[in-house]
Nucleic acid binder design. Structure first.
Lengths: 198, 198
DNA sequence: CAATTTCCTTACCAATCGGTAAGTTCGCTT
DNA sequence: AAGCGAACTTACCGATTGGTAAGGAAATTG
């Protein structure tokens, strides 16, 4: 039964951290959401920071294993890039709390001043860069240029996922549903056009 | 002298909210940064929420006035879109606190559950959509499709700006400086390629 | 010169934060 | 049946949060 409680706490924490951020979410809220006291949470995770750390680790592992699975099934580098990006889009849309937490992490670790190398997703970025650099006619891109390119697509994806509530608020449910349906194709178009050299 | 103090408080608040978010930044910190007590801040702004509201309003006004200025100088719609996007990129890079605050707002107003229409930047998005829909061969895009398209570029920009500390941490100062230098051109390439129909 | 307003202070408040200490209640082992 | 550790609870703790109340100094106004 302990395993279950732990998983429930992690789920609740994922929701709370996504919605309110690390500072805004209280461990009392998180525990309360599944009918426990904050001391029960502390019993399982030791501290708020450790709980948050486990969540970050879990998210990174999920994303990276997704990537590895995708890379195994596609060989052509451009198709691989396309598959990876739409795969990430689908994943983030399905688990938008994860996208929110990662976006917040991007904003907060400036303040938290974590030591270098502590970031879980660098291998993921590195593999994207190396894929771009094997695309025909793009082999001699500098690391910075390839990274900038990759980052444009990643930015599009994450920004869109994270904007859901605001977009729905501003343009209505129907428009956002249509956007969501189109986005995958639009992303593919964007990538293809970018690499379709005259 | 009051005007000066007010402006100093706004600047300090902008920095703090950008770095720590609405919940993470305390009014005591903000006031302390210019050598005052939090009660002085409350005297000028009434409450934390009102202070934050003024900052949001200021940011939106700045961006929108930038847009209006740009639109007056360029006529061709594709060139206009390009100029607007690179203009926004430059602006956000120069005032990265603003980009951070807007990104946080995107994440937090889900939790704050603000009433619809309360968002300051809708007119800005609307004008971008209308520009896209006047680009040759794109006239019959639906609103959702045009918005998705615009959002891809905006996402690229804001995500990049906000990632500065993390990118610097992961890849070093030099790589990030190179990325920053390239990003404007890469953005232009992305836009041009996207609309360059075979 | 007197009165008022602006700007800021110290003093205080209840609420909430993350975390510690000390049980209690349970199921499992020996 | 005795013991034990895991899973929780209530009861606290000091620190910090946003905000109120009251007053003082100084400039502005009558």
């Amino acid at each position: 039964m302990s395993k279950n409680t732990r998983e429930q706490l992690l789920e609740s924490a994922r929701r709370c951290f996504a919605a309110k951020g690390f500072y805004g979410a209280s461990i009392a809220d998180i525990a309360d959401e599944i009918g426990l006291t904050k001391q029960a949470l502390l019993h399982h995770f030791g501290s708020k920071e450790k709980l948050y750390g486990e969540i970050l680790k879990g998210i990174a592992e999920g994303i990276i294993s997704d990537i590895i699975r995708t890379r195994a099934h596609v060989t052509n580098p451009l198709a691989q890039l396309e598959a990876l990006m739409t795969g990430i889009l689908d994943r983030q849309l399905a688990h938008s709390e994860e996208a929110q937490i990662l976006m917040r992490e991007l904003l907060d670790n400036r303040a938290r001043a974590e030591q270098a190398g502590n970031w879980y997703l660098k291998p993921f970025l590195d593999s994207l860069v190396s894929i771009v650099r094997t695309i025909p006619l793009e082999e001699d891109l500098t690391e910075a240029r390839a990274l900038a390119l990759v980052y444009q697509f990643l930015g599009s994806i994450n920004y869109f996922v994270v904007s859901e509530p605001t977009l729905t608020q501003m343009f209505g449910k129907e428009v956002h549903a249509a956007m969501r349906q189109d986005y995958s194709e639009q992303l593919r178009l964007l990538i293809r056009h970018r690499f379709h050299h005259g």
